[in-house]
C-alpha cells in the first residue's frame, strides 16, 4: 500500500487571542480509520482545515503521505479529499454532474466507472438527474460525501459526515465507511459516540484545542475507568476542564 500516513507535529492555530488548536501532535497510520472527538469548539474542524491545506498553521508541521502541508501543498491536495462540515455541492448542477465535475477537477482516470461506483455505494440512482439544491438536506449531505469519494483519495477527511442523516441513512453510511476501511486513511469527526466506537480503529479526544487522550475505544474506557464509552468521553472532557480550572 502507498504511504498514506499522517504525521502531525506541534500544530498550532490561533484566531486573535483564541487558541483553536494548541500544540497538536499525532501519528495516524496508513489505512487507519481515526476518530476525532471533542465538544463544540474543541478545534476539530480547524485541525482538518490545516491538514487539508485550507488554512495555514501558525506553527508546527504535518506530513500527509510524506508530503508537507506547508511546502508541498500541491502534492497533498492531489492525494486527499474532504467532506466539509457544511454540505458542499454545486446547487444548479444535477447529482451526476456534481460527481463528474469533481472527478474531472481531480483528473480521475476512469471517470465514468468511478462515478458509477459511488452512485451504487451511496444509492444515488433515484436522484441522479435532480439539481442538488432541490434535494433534502440529508440527501445533499450524501452527495457531498460521495463527491469526496469519487476521486478515490489516499487520505479522506469526513467532518461530521452523519450530521442531519436519518437512522437508516446513518447506518448505510456506516456500512459505506466500513467498506472503505484500510483502502484509505480516514479522519472522521463526529458528536455521536456510538458512531466513533462502532467505526474507528483509534480515537482522539480534544478539548480547547488540546489533545487529551488517544487510543482505541476500549483503551479510552479503561483510561477513564468507565464501562460505557459515552461516560468515558464525558470523564475525559470534564477532567481536562477541572485541570484547566486548577491552573
Amino acid at each position: 500500500m502507498e504511504n498514506s500516513s499522517i504525521e502531525i507535529k506541534n500544530l498550532r492555530k490561533t484566531y486573535g487571542s483564541l487558541t483553536a488548536v494548541n500544540d497538536l501532535s499525532l501519528n495516524i497510520g496508513s489505512g487507519e480509520l481515526f476518530g476525532l472527538l471533542g465538544v463544540n469548539g474543541a478545534g476539530k474542524t480547524t485541525t482538518i482545515k490545516m491538514l487539508s491545506c485550507l488554512i495555514k498553521p501558525d506553527s508546527g508541521e504535518a506530513f500527509l503521505g510524506g508530503n508537507s502541508i506547508i511546502t508541498q501543498s500541491a502534492e497533498v491536495k492531489r492525494i486527499i479529499n474532504l467532506s466539509t462540515q457544511e454540505t458542499a455541492v454545486a446547487p444548479k448542477l444535477t447529482v451526476r454532474e456534481n460527481l463528474e465535475f469533481v472527478a474531472d477537477i481531480y483528473g480521475v482516470p476512469d471517470r465514468n466507472a468511478a462515478v458509477e461506483s459511488v452512485i451504487k455505494d451511496f444509492s444515488l440512482e433515484s436522484v441522479l438527474d435532480r439539481k442538488a439544491k432541490t434535494l433534502s438536506g440529508g440527501w445533499q449531505r450524501k452527495v457531498s460525501i460521495a463527491m469526496a469519494l469519487v476521486t478515490s483519495p489516499r487520505i479522506l477527511f469526513l467532518d461530521e459526515p452523519t450530521l442531519g442523516l436519518d437512522v437508516l441513512a446513518r447506518r448505510e453510511l456506516w456500512t459505506a465507511i466500513k467498506a472503505l476501511k484500510s483502502r484509505m486513511t480516514i479522519i472522521l469527526t463526529t458528536h455521536y459516540l456510538d458512531e466513533a466506537e462502532a467505526l474507528c480503529d483509534r480515537i482522539a479526544v480534544m478539548t480547547e484545542g488540546c489533545l487529551r487522550a488517544v487510543g482505541t475505544a476500549d483503551e479510552l474506557k479503561a483510561m477513564a475507568g468507565k464501562d460505557d464509552f459515552e461516560e468515558a468521553f464525558i470523564e475525559i472532557a470534564e477532567r481536562s476542564k477541572r485541570k484547566g480550572a486548577a491552573l
Binding site: N81, T84, E86, A88, P91, I105, S144
Partner: peptide, 17 residues
Amino acid sequence: SQDRTGAFLTRLYASPM
C-alpha cells in the same frame, strides 16, 4: 457571491485547483 456563501468553493480550495 452566491458561490462564496456555501461550502462549495471550500471543497474546490482543497482540490488541486
